[in-house]
Every structure is written in C-alpha cells, then in structure tokens.
Design a protein around this nucleic acid. Structure first.
Lengths: 138, 138
DNA sequence: GTTGTTGCAAAGAATTTGCAACATA
DNA sequence: TATGTTGCAAATTCTTTGCAACAAC
C-alpha cells in the first residue's frame, strides 16, 4: 500500500483522516467554483455520502484554517474553494461562482508601499475581481 | 430656511428624508470606523434616539444601495461606513475598525489588464488591506 | 485504550417579512 | 391625501454548541 497523499496532508495539519474529511476535501478539489456548507452538504447527501451538516461546517472551517481552502462571503453566507498554498488573489465569476487564482506581485508591492506610508502594520490583504467569466459572458 | 443638504441628498436618491434616515446618515458621517446594524442601533438608542432595529437594517441597506455607504463583512455580520462617492479601496484597522479610503490607480490598471487577458467582463473589484493602524500598533 | 470526531437535536445570532399605524411630500 | 416608512413580533436562515456514540491512531 502506497502512502495515501490526501490523508497524509490532513495528518500533517493535525487532523485525523476521517472518511468525512477526505470526502469533503476530495469534493472541493474536484470543483473549480466555490460552494457553501449548506450546498455542499446537500450535494454530498444526494451523491449518497452519509455526512452531517454540522460535520460539513466543522470540516470546511478546519480545512480553511489549515490553509487547504479559501473563503468567500456570498451575501451573508460563507463559501469555500480549494486553493493552492501560496498567497494569491481571485477572479470570481458571479454567474457560475467559478474562481480563478491569480498571483499579483504588483498588488503585493502596492500593499507594502501604501502601508508603509501610513504607518500601518499589515496582517493581510485581499484583491479580488468580480465579473463574468469568458464562458458566462459569451 | 436654507436648503437642507443631507435631506436633499436623500431625496435625490429617491428616499424620503425621515428623521430616522437623517439620524443614521449623520451618525455614520460622524465616525471614521465601520459599524454593524446591531451596534449602531444600540448606540442610537443609548443616545436617546428612538429608532427600531428593523429600521436601522433597512436604512443601512438603502443608504449602501444609494452609494452613501461602503459595506464590509466582519465575521458573519455586515458593517457599514460612510464613504465618498468615487471608487476607492480601504485600509482597515482590525483593532479599532477605523477605515481609511485610498485611491489606487495601480490597482485599477492591474484589474483591467488581468481581466482582459482572461476574457473576463469586470463588474467590480475590491482591494482592501487589513492590519493595525498607526495608533493601534503603537 | 485514548483522544479526537461525528451527528443529532437544540440553541444562538443576524437578518428579513407581515402588517397596521404613521409621517413625508 | 396618497404613498413611502416605521416598528413590533414572528419567521427565516446560517451557524454553533452540548453530548453520547463512535472511529482513528
């Protein structure tokens, strides 16, 4: 038996590799849009995966804390999307919720510069672009 | 009687200039941090202003729609802050919730460039910096 | 075997809606 | 006066918590 990569990644983050967590992580990895806890729970249930809503909430939260997921606020609810580890920004389609990751050194530079000018101690920043992706605007 | 500027501004936006709306608008104009509907309601009540929580919610929402306020998401709840009309970004202090508006042509340029590259039809963007302001990090 | 995790039911919190009384234009 | 607005109470919706059964290590 070879090393189980997803399970290993979870353990490295101090999380036990339970069936539910692997399911959620896999589901998120398989999609390129963002999804809410409620919606994901419904999808998994409909796909025959036995998992509780509470667990979906806790799992998404834990995975986001561990850096596996990015979070978005969508009119009052939290949506999550799988992300690569390093810092990046987003191109968000408002029609299909697809999210493209983009890196932007220009923005990083801009952040440092502005912050320095105002004596601001930066803890984080976000620079996201919203609109319609090529498919949806076609 | 001279023209009442705040009342006039409301009417221009298609909103009746009620005591409650003027109160909310004034309260927001007087502060440089962002505040939630719940908190603002409590403050106004404590200041002796008779206003219902429902009205605070509806008023903040209407004022934001009309472009008088910017909205922020603060861990599950919406916060509002008075803003100037033209497009800008924010420097947000996580300790005192103070918000400084900043303009950034660099960011505007970056947005256009990225969007064009990917065939994205931009409807909006945000570029906010979070951290501790000079006062709070001192 | 320990300890972290799950999931149900219940609680909690923010926000919205129905509707009759009321204020603005 | 006609229509938009208010505010209470009730309803909704998202999210969290208590706790006993259970699974991972």
């Amino acid at each position: 038996m070879v090393t189980d990569a997803p399970a290993h990644a979870l353990r490295e983050a101090g999380l036990r590799a339970t069936r539910q967590r692997l399911t959620v992580l896999e589901a998120l990895r398989a999609r390129e849009d963002s999804i809410t806890a409620q919606d994901l729970h419904m999808e998994l249930r409909q796909a025959g995966e036995p998992i509780g809503l509470t667990t979906v909430y806790r799992t998404l939260s834990a995975l986001a804390d561990a850096g596996f997921l990015d979070t978005f606020e969508r009119e009052g609810e939290l949506a999550f999307r799988h992300c690569s580890v390093d810092h990046h920004h987003h191109l968000v389609c408002e029609a299909c919720n697809k999210v493209e990751e983009i890196t932007a050194e220009e923005v990083e530079r801009w952040v440092q510069e502005i912050a320095q000018t105002r004596g601001f101690a930066v803890t984080g920043h976000r620079a996201d672009i919203f609109g319609l992706c090529a498919d949806c605007s076609a």
